[in-house]
Design a protein around this nucleic acid. Sequence first.
DNA 1: TCATTTCACATTGTTGACAATTCCGCAATC
DNA 2: GATTGCGGAATTGTCAACAATGTGAAATGA
Lengths: 225, 225
Amino acid sequence: MAEQNGPSTQQIVEKVWLSIAERRLRPGVQLKEEQMAAIFNVSRARIRQALTVLERDGLVTIIPNRGAFVSKPSVEEARDVFFVRRTVERCVVERLSRSVSKADLKRLRDHVAKERIANAQDITTDIIKLSGGFHLLLAETVGSDFLFTTMRDLISRSSLITAVYRNTNRFNCGPDEHAEIVEAITNNDVDKATRLMAHHLEHVESELDLSEIRDLSHDLRSALA
Amino acid sequence: MAEQNGPSTQQIVEKVWLSIAERRLRPGVQLKEEQMAAIFNVSRARIRQALTVLERDGLVTIIPNRGAFVSKPSVEEARDVFFVRRTVERCVVERLSRSVSKADLKRLRDHVAKERIANAQDITTDIIKLSGGFHLLLAETVGSDFLFTTMRDLISRSSLITAVYRNTNRFNCGPDEHAEIVEAITNNDVDKATRLMAHHLEHVESELDLSEIRDLSHDLRSALA
DNA sequence: TCATTTCACATTGTTGACAATTCCGCAATC
DNA sequence: GATTGCGGAATTGTCAACAATGTGAAATGA
């Protein structure tokens, strides 16, 4: 009977992820099932499933019999995520620089172009999605399913970390640095590509203020709308 | 009201994981919710949750409206997992060899001792759990939550891969090689530790037969009992 | 006034039933 | 004989009601 099917689990996950990345949902906020079910117009069961996935992604922390809360990554966790990223992404660009198809290069260039457009038009939502998406696309291009999954986890957590600790107004991952990396990959310049990636990640990390978390309660409905 | 509470979600996940690692559950086998609910004596909802986690771990593949099946890792996926493991675990032992507490060293040695016992007594279940657990313990000791999670994913997939492609009768990860690695870490010998780990992983991978998957249907109840 | 107990409310966890979808066998047709 | 269309059975997806748990505020006593 119709039930005006609401968004799928994956869509809910993405929506919450975006809300966190855009800082509309602050760490510590409780994600109440019933409330979310009302907002997304779905049953609690589906919300529950989405929360399970989000916990697995490290974006929310579920405390049994208490509920799900937006995670508060500690400073050490933040440093660790970037440490792992340096290791993993170095490996990614290394493999790509050695062998990459023309079609893949085109996809990468097209993606950077999209990033440029989003930046020029200053569409925050697209900027966030695409800047993380670039790193994800790199991992995907390698062709390793595991690498891709790992990268997705890293990107999710990075978004959360950036949302919490960012001290500048600009969002991370400018398209220019991405473009340089693509260029180095195109030229099969392994050394330059890895150096650029390392520098890029350092740059992103350097824009974080690793002092304290500012707590701020928030209205769930307006954040997820 | 009592309901003789069945196993928790995590326990179910572990049980399935073990069944897969022990080759009692073969790739391609469908994990029917109702059947599993009956076997574990819990509701379908909990089974469903466990399956979601298992999918995230890469052990099962969920096809919408079809069901959950034990994953069939391809040869490329197998190679990729070991490639990533070489990268990640190298990073792990590198960090550990630089700085490790006495208490941590004791835990590592105790773990190897347990492995020795399990091997001596030839208890397959323990051997499998502990040999994967060693690598997991290494990652945990580093103190990075993300590294630990990543390692757990890798171990899960490795178990599946080993279960599918292993061509020898012995299980991977002999305790002797583990002991050597611990010793190198104890001596803060970064170079030796990384070399030993690389060699160890090569050894494990070399025992795999990367030709073809042999299909074989199976009885679900006896496999999970 | 402060600590402690009690109790009601809010939230999560679980269950069983129902709806929707897919698969498999069978028959009819070309 | 191969193919296609058509139920019926099996399985997954969804929901709403109920039970269990934790929280916080009010009441009580020192």
